[in-house]
Structure formats: C-alpha cells, structure tokens
Amino acid sequence: MPSSVPGELPNRFPQSGSGARSRGVSTSVPARDRAASSIPLLGSELSVLFRRRRTWAMLLALAAIPVLIAVAVRLSSSVPSGRGPAFLDRISQNGLFVAVTAMLVSVPLFLPLTIGVVAGDTIAGEASLGTLRYLLVAPAGRVRLLLVKYAGALVFCVAAPVTVALAGAAIGASLFPIGPVTLLSGDVVQPPEAAVRLVLIAAYLAVSLAGLSAIGLFLSTLTVVPVGAMAATVVLSVVSQVLDQLPQLEWLHPWLFSHYWLGFGDLLRQPVLWDSFGSNALLQAGYVAVFGALAYGRFVTKDVLS
C-alpha cells in the first residue's frame, strides 16, 4: 500500500530563497479605504464570473469526474489492487475515497485547464469584449482592477477543487458505504475527521493553483485574444509537469510551480505532516509575487486600444 502513496517529498523548496515574501509598504488607513471601496467591484466581478455559462460548464465537468469514477467502480465487480489511480481500490469499501481519487485524478490536467481558462480570460477577455476601456474609464483604476481580477481567479481556484470534493463525497456516499477511514499512516479516523481531511486537500489544491493563476493573469495582460492566454497558461502547466518528470533536470524541480501539486498525501497521515503544505505555499507565494509584479508592470503602462 505505501507504494501508492502520492507525493513522497524527494526535495524541499530551498528555504534560503529570498524575495518570495515581499510585502507592499503602504500606510494602513488608505489601504483599508482602498480595500473597502474594492468590495463592490469584487462582488460584481464574482457575479460576472459565476453568471457565465462557461464557468458553470467547467464546474459541472469537474463534478463529473468523481461521478464517472464512482459509477465505473460501482459497475465493475472488483478493482485489482495496485492498478489505476491511487486510492481507486479503496473506493468500494469507503465512499469518501471517491473524492480523494477524483481530486488526485484532476490535478494534472483538468484543474489546470479550468484555471487556465479563468485566469487567461481575466484581462484579455475584457479587452476582447471592449469592456476593459469602459472599466478603466469608470474609473476602476488599473491596479485595483488587476487585484480584483486576481482575487476573482483565486475564488475560482477554491471553487474548482471544492466542487470535485463535494461531488465526490456526495456520489461516494450515495453509491458506497461510509465508514471509518484508514489513513496512509495506518491510523483510523471517523468520517467527520475524514471530511476535515478532504477540506484540507481541497485547500492544498487551491493554494497549488494560485501560482498558475498569477501566470495566467500575466499572460492575459499581454494579449487581447483570451484564447491565446488560456492556451498558453494550460501549456505552461503541462510543460512544468513534464520537466518535473525528467531526472536530468533535478536541480530545477523544486522551482517548478507544479512540483508539489501531488504532495497532498501528507495530509492523510496522523498527525498531519504540514511540510509539503508549507513548502508548496511558499513556492506559490513566490510565483504570485513574481508574476503579479510582471502583470502589474505590464498592465499599468499598457495602451488600451481594443
């Protein structure tokens, strides 16, 4: 069984790496004012995002993953141990593993795909509709708009894995028995505790996708063709994962934004091992800082001609 444990941590993100925790220096009162005045815009951003059929289609597609897995397992008589995605062979004993398996399966492609669409669309989508000029003339403020756009993408980063987890738990509970869960460390926890672990995994994935969202946001400031920014973001996520597989590039691995994506196995131990969560968060924060700065540099000086 331990052979199928996802995300044994071969490397740690170098703690000596500096610059990842850069904080803006601004006086607190105007900052609070600015934040307060951004809440209506964030609300409007989220309502536009979640009123689009495309967003719901993507969330539905994500929800379909655990449903497919559960139905397939249900219809087949038995799953040979050790084949297929990790945890697949445990589903028939405990429905909660549908959610875990589905999250694991969606990490390499499906989640990056949906994040690529949302993050790549942030600025380029507004530019291609022509609404960017009206938002800026409103005036939304370029920095404020960029921050709100990124915040909207982050909300989707949370919504996507949560959708997979919820759909997985729901279909798992309806097709399979729910009972005490045996963790990777061998300890047994009761279903409520197991549900907390599911939430932790979803949070881990949301954090994992923050860096990719920042990359998508930056790419989105470069073009007025949203599909271009979306495709480039998704391609980068695939390239990063491929590079992570090449042993010749071992030195590069800890710096790849996808490096810890599958490292959430540590959350299924007793006690929880937070190392990979921390390393992942630090790495993602570094990507957010770098690509956020690039997006800022590009967007505040950009001529809006669409």
């Binding site: 409007s44 009123r51 022509g130 609404t131 000029r133 939304a140 708009l145």
Partner: peptide, 27 residues
C-alpha cells in the same frame, strides 16, 4: 462620462446588469 469607439458590453448580462457592473467599477 464617455463613449469610446462604440459601445461594449457583456453579451451574457442584461442591459441593467451591465450598467450595474460598470457603475460598481467606479470607486
């Protein structure tokens, strides 16, 4: 108030919702 190179809106929102959106954008 400005109209620049023709109107531009979110096609999937209603006229009123579009105006709400652009008004919310203003600080």
């Amino acid at each position: 108030g400005a109209l620049v190179e023709g109107p531009a809106f979110y096609p999937f929102l209603s006229g009123a919702a579009n105006l709400h959106r652009l008004d919310a954008a203003s600080r």
